[in-house]
Amino acid sequence: MPMAERALPAPFRRAPGAAVALVVLVAIFAASSGGRFLSVGNLVSLSSQVALLLLVALPMTFVVLTEGLDLSVGALMGLAGVVAATAMLGGWGVPGALLAALGTGLVLGAVNGALIAWGGMPAFVVTLGTMGLAEGLALAVTDGEPVSGFGDAPRLAWQAMIGPVPLPVAVAAALYALLHLLLYRTPFGAHVVAVGGNREALRLAGIRGRAVHAAVYVLSASCAALAAFLLVGRTNAAHPTVALGVEFDAIVAVVLGGTSFERGQGWLFGTVLGAAAIGVLRNGLNVLAVDPSLQVVAVGLLAILALVAGNRRGGRART
């Protein structure tokens, strides 16, 4: 695992809260659930839930590394899902639907990227705007009704197993490998780190720096569109607002994992830990049937305590 990345001095010294939180949570839930938490069935559904979050959170790590964030991914997942389902109903087949969803992601990501990298506009505001556009389009096209009746292919994809590994987990693992290479072994990755590390350098870097800056938003949106396709399989329907709020879980996973909103410091594997911590917390609270109102408090406490414990570095959200 990426313990000795060149760009990232001694990541464990920063002790991402996620790693601590994860170990503690797993121990608590495993001890008190009478074997249910660690049952095969639960691990399959838990890992699939985490995988879906990772498809959004891994590329979000790139975005946060550039001192940005992407609030539009949740709304985009709703829109891309509706597009994919409509394409399948229109006889485009699964590959066509996948391409249509990816195309939706590419367009929205390009809009985000262009406005942020070339327009010099703040990512928070731009993606808040495109979030409204995507949510509104998805709602208006469907009149709020879920789209369904497109056959079994997406559902079978979500439930498929590759050996002992659920397909969504395999997809997330492949994406991790790909993004790991991209971030740590290519000039693109070095540029991403540089973009966040030094805004002034970015401004002077010209076209290439801006293209890299824009590309992280295209990456984020494309991965969200891919996740949308799996989500359509999970629910066997495309609901226009199904994923609203996912963007916050993804950002929390990234920052829990030790990636900083400033100074271009980050750790891709930390995001895996962060997403796992969020997934384990929510799943564990459900498996133990904790009082619903206390679950809400627990999510907030995890976010803050893990940060206080692990990420005691200075900083404000400069987005």
Binding site: N42, Q49, V287
Partner: peptide, 14 residues
């Protein structure tokens, strides 16, 4: 919807 769906999956385990 997404959270309710996760809860349904978690109840299979419970």
């Amino acid at each position: 919807i997404a959270e309710a769906t996760s809860q349904l999956e978690d109840v299979v385990a419970a």
